[in-house]
Amino acid sequence: MATEAQGAEGGGLVFHPMDQFIVKPLFGGTDVGMFTITNATLWMFLAVLAVIALMVLGTSRRAIVPSRTQSIGELAYGFVYKMVEDVAGKDALSFFPYIMTLFMFIVFANFLGLIPMSFTTTSHFAVTVVLALLVFFTVTIVGFVKNGSKFLGLFWVASAPLALRPVLAIIEVISYFVRPVSHSIRLAGNLMAGHAVIKVFAGFAAIAVVSPISVVAITAMYGLEILVSFIQAYVFTILTCVYLKDALHPSH
């Protein structure tokens, strides 16, 4: 990888912890156009393949007594299904395939990003902002379609004293519009930070004296990143469910 090569040339302690996030065309050239196949494209494609492998090929035998792959697929299905049902309510189950899509993509993109030398698609704001805005617009549109103007009751806290309500309404509106920002930055930021920290420790591994500590630290960070990969996918999904619940049942 470019980082290591440059570090070796320089001879000193050189870090390029962010180079792993550079989007590059896969088949030569330097220009990244709209439709160029890049490393981001490759790893998104691999995420699609992984989803298909688990959810379609893994369940192809439709066994009553499931194989290992099939039970993982069923586990993922049950996990998200139960989450949607518990958090957003039974009437949100029509959004289950949509939420499942988000969860499966994020969880696989996160875990594929943990493969050394891979590219973490979900560490890019371009990706998470689109995911978060999709949720934001879906929730807003569903809220207005299902509840009409009553959806605005979400911002008008009827249980608060009348004098406080306008103030609270402003706060509620701001918090509503900050949702996609926090929703997207939380995911990309967590992944980016973790991967960058691993890379920084990897840079330290070039110094013989600290390299054992560095290797241990990389291992520990990697373990933490495995946890973060799942938890961030879970958090993104459950927040989507929470927002959906607000849209379907806007009363506080």
């Binding site: 156009g33 993509f105 999709l134």
Partner: peptide, 22 residues
């Protein structure tokens, strides 16, 4: 570029999941 491929990815996953897997 990323948004374009992301949208394709999501659409493919959505159809695979909602039509076949789920």
């Amino acid at each position: 570029n990323q948004i374009f491929w992301l949208v394709i990815t999501l659409v493919v996953i959505y159809f695979v999941l909602s039509r076949v897997a789920l």
